[in-house]
Every structure is written in structure tokens, then in C-alpha cells.
Design a protein around this nucleic acid. Sequence first.
DNA 1: AAGGGGTCATAACCCTTTCCTATGGGTGGC
DNA 2: GCCACCCATAGGAAAGGGTTATGACCCCTT
Lengths: 307, 307
Amino acid sequence: MTPSLRQIRALVAAVETGSFVQAAARLHVSQPALTVQIREMEQALGVTLFDRTARGARPTRAGAALAASFQRILAELEAVVDSAREQAARRAGVVHLAVLPSVAATLLPGALARLRAAHPGIRVMLRDAVARRVGALVRAGEADLGIGHAAAQPEPELEETPLFEDALVAVLPPGHPLAALPSLPLAALASVPLVLTDPESSLRALAEAAFAAAGLAVPRPAYEATYMSTAVALVRAGLGLALLPATAIDLRAAPELETRPVETPSDGASGSMALRRRIVLLRRRGASLSPAAEALAEVLGLLANPL
Amino acid sequence: MTPSLRQIRALVAAVETGSFVQAAARLHVSQPALTVQIREMEQALGVTLFDRTARGARPTRAGAALAASFQRILAELEAVVDSAREQAARRAGVVHLAVLPSVAATLLPGALARLRAAHPGIRVMLRDAVARRVGALVRAGEADLGIGHAAAQPEPELEETPLFEDALVAVLPPGHPLAALPSLPLAALASVPLVLTDPESSLRALAEAAFAAAGLAVPRPAYEATYMSTAVALVRAGLGLALLPATAIDLRAAPELETRPVETPSDGASGSMALRRRIVLLRRRGASLSPAAEALAEVLGLLANPL
DNA sequence: AAGGGGTCATAACCCTTTCCTATGGGTGGC
DNA sequence: GCCACCCATAGGAAAGGGTTATGACCCCTT
């Protein structure tokens, strides 16, 4: 039988004060209560912890050594508990967040800055991943929160909170003839060289579905690029137009490029397909959020109305 | 309020098993008891530790983190307690021992070897010191046991257990005329060059008291040596006879030297002074000995009848 | 030498905490 | 749709811990 916390605290106090009376006072109990605790611990351990004298209790070597160890353990315990409390109070904590790279590169930094301003103690472990992996990370509990797409069919394990809609826009090189138009009909894109993402990506699937829904032939891209930076570079080199998420394009990196919204026929009606993604906040259904994660979720909710 | 050990163990078990039912079984309590412990800890800390579902309780991040810390602390606690128990069982432990250099160099090694044979886990922290300092160390509790002299007047704080008597013997160079005698009367030493220890030492006082008690003039030593090795070297060089404790002389280091007992007139009667020291085991009165120290004391008691 | 003030130990009683049994609500699997 | 499993709740029972009162002992003082 390991001693109880009461016994541990009794030993530490008695060794430090060198007196059962003073130790009892420090622990706000009566002297007999403390005496009993010490005696029972001695019996349980089979160790004499004190030499009782008329003017106090002097710890034996074993008692002093044990008290030192106990004190260290108590300090660790206090530290651990305090830390847990701090995290509960949102003064500290860690959140694991999985994010689409496009959002991570553009809108997220501002949100994290606001989080830091509101809760400086919270650390965010960021992981960027494609949409499928974001969902998997949240489902597995490796991420507390995820920023991904609205799923085509509802997933029972994931709970979605809409953040904003991310339209696909056409990215044009300077001086391109289509840049004269304020917005581009989808049909206009069917006949020009296009830079699309790789066939496995959700963006590619979204684009192809939009063409199909509009009754247009699914375009064969002139180039396929996995990374946004590659696609932008191809456009800048005049090799075609790109269809990219509006929020994913960092125009500071390519200020000379033009972007135009894309019109789909009878946008939003059945039989057509909007060229936009619904970006959602993902969390695991039934899993409670840590206070730190809640704080982050609050801030991320502001992505719906970016400042 | 820090959580109780019960609560801590409940959390660890519940996180490890992922189920309140299994955790309760491991801790040999009912499931409601464990549920209550967890709930009260959550309230006390203000932290949600588990997400309750229909097929188990899944720890939150905070719960998992806290459980990991608690588990480490529990392991430390077990280790500390086990160590204390081991020491109580004499399987381990540390004893601080203060010893006269003469005893430390001659009889002690054998005693320590016997201790090691009987209790291999016990470590002895050895400190050699002059008689006065041996007493001081034991009195201050810096040494659990001491090997020193019987005090002239009884010291209230120290308890003495006789170990053996250590006679002063004359040490002679090879071929010395007095070596023809089987034992030397004290008077014979009054007229030859003597090597004595320094005036502050207890050995010197003992020798001088013996001469005075025998009605002889207190001899003026030809040389004074603080260390035994010096005295022996002086004798070997033919510079005089030395009066040294029999047990302190390591004859292996000087095999050619002769030793002779010294006779004091009416040895043991009043008015005379035996040329011997009573070597005693010292402990602090009222201080209980650790089991390891008791084991050492038992072995040291055998010094009275060396094997 | 005796008494007073300090210490720790013991005993009897009480109370707060904790536990157990019984039961209910809810959710997946057959 | 029912059964099996899990966790939550409630009320009575057991136990551990606490307090007060008292005793024995020692030191220091008078």
C-alpha cells in the first residue's frame, strides 16, 4: 500500500517543521490527527520516520530522505495541476489544427494573429494537408480542428461549420484578350488553353463537374500543376489561363496578373454547378473541444466575415 | 484543491483502458465509484477530461495529457516508496560512519567486508577523523555511528558500546638492545629517545598521563610525528622508540620492526595508568538507527572478538 | 525538588467521504 | 426492434479521518 496524499503531506510538514504540533497547525488539523497519519505510514512502510523526543520529533535519516522525495513529487503534482487549470482558463494550451494549404497561406495568418492577441498563451500546432487528409486527421483525433471542404455526402463522424465560400476565378496573364471582359462565362474557357490542377485533386474534380453540368465538354488542360505557385508561374509565362480558388492566390507574389470571376449558367440552379468551394470548419462529432481549441474555433468563425 | 490519489489513479486507469467499466475493474471498485471520482476531478479542475460516448469514454486532449503526467508521478511515488521499504528490509541503505584513522586503516576493512557479505545493498559513507571530531560528527547527526575513544567524563548525548581495548606498544628498530626483553617496563622507556605524537593528540596525553601516574618524569620526545607512517619511519631509521596503538601499526608495511608490550606498574590499580585506549562504538542517544546502521553496528560489535 | 509548559501518544466519539447496489438513459449491433 | 453495452444518478451502508479530552514524559524554572 502506497501512502495517501494526506500522509505524504503530513510527513513533509513534520520534517520541515521538526514538530508534530507545528506541522499539524500548518496543515490545519489537530495534532493527534497528524500523529496518527505518521504512525500509520510508518507501519505501512515498516520504516521508523521520526525519533520522538520530549521537545519535538526529529526525523530519522529515512524520514528525511523520504520527505525530500515526497516534497519533490508534491511539487510536480502541483505544477501539473496548475498547468491543467491554466489551460482550462484559456491562458495556455495547445491546439492541433489541420488546414488546406490554400487557406493556410492566405487567410489563416490573420486569424492566428487575432488568436494570439486574445490568448497569448495558446500555441497552435499547424499542419497543412489536402482536403481528404484534413478530414482524416480530424477523424483520427490527431487534429482538434480542421479547415476543409464541405463533404459531398455527409460524414457521420465529422461536424461541419461553414466558414466562407471560395469561388474559383480565372487567372489571366497581362494583356490577355479575355481580360477585357469584367467576368468570364464558363463557355469562354472551353476554347482556351487551361492550367488545371492534377487529376486527383478536389479542385480538378470541381472544375470538371462544372463544365459537365453546363453541358460543355470537359476540357483537356494544357498543363497540370500540383502547386499554386507552379500554376501562377505558368499563367504568367502566357501558357494559359488557370482556374484557382480566389483566396488561394497571393496577388502580392504576382501583381501583374489579372483575375476574373467565372459565370456558370443559371448559377445555383439545379443542373448547373457553381464554381465554388464551401470552406468549412471541421471537428469530430461527439468530441469536446479543449478551451484552447474553442478559442481558436471562435476566431476561425470570423473567417466568414474577414476583417 | 489538488486531486486525491484515488482520483489520480482513476484518471490514469480510465485513460489507459478507454473505458470506465474496465478502469473500475482494474481498480477493484464499482463503475459508479469511478465515475464519481472522475466527475469530481473534472469539476475541481474545471477541465473536461473525457468525451462520454455510448461505447466508451474517450479522453480529451487535456485528459490524455494529464493522465500521462499523473502516470509519471505515480511511478515516481512507487519507486520512492519501494526504495524506502527496501532500506527498511536492510536490502539497501546508506550508513554514515565516522572512524578513528587507526581503526579505519586496520580493523575496519574486514568488518566492512563482512557487512558487504551479509547485506550487499548497504553502502557505507566512511569518514576518518580524530577522536574529538568523531564525537562531534555523531553528536551532530552527520554520522550515524562513530568509532572513537571512551570519553573521560560521560557525555550525555553519546552512547558508548565497548568494542575492544587498544594497548600502546613500544615499536623498536631491529637489533635494539631493549628488543631482548619480552616486555618493556615503562621505566625503561624514560631514558631512551622516544617518538611520540604531537602534543595535542589524545595518544600523547595518554602516554604522558601514564608516565606521570607511574611517578616518572614526563619524557621529552626526541621527535614528534602526527602521522603513524612518519613515526614508523623514524623508528625504522633508528631515531628512537615509538609508543603507538597496537592496532594502528600495520606491520606489513614495516615487517622488520619489533613491537613489545609496555608494563605499567601495578597495572589497573589506582594510582597507575594503563597504557591503553578503550575503543567504543558511539551513537547519538535517543536517535534510532536506520536498519542499515543497525546492520553495521552488529558487524562492528564483532570487532570486540576479531575473527 | 517540585511544578509548569512544552512535546507526542492514546482513546472515544462523530462526521464527512467514499463505496456499493439498484436503476435509468442512450447508442450501436444483430 | 431488441439486446447488449456503457455511462449517469440516487440512496443507504461502510470506513476512514477528524476533534476533543486526557495521559505520559521531559526539560526548564523556581
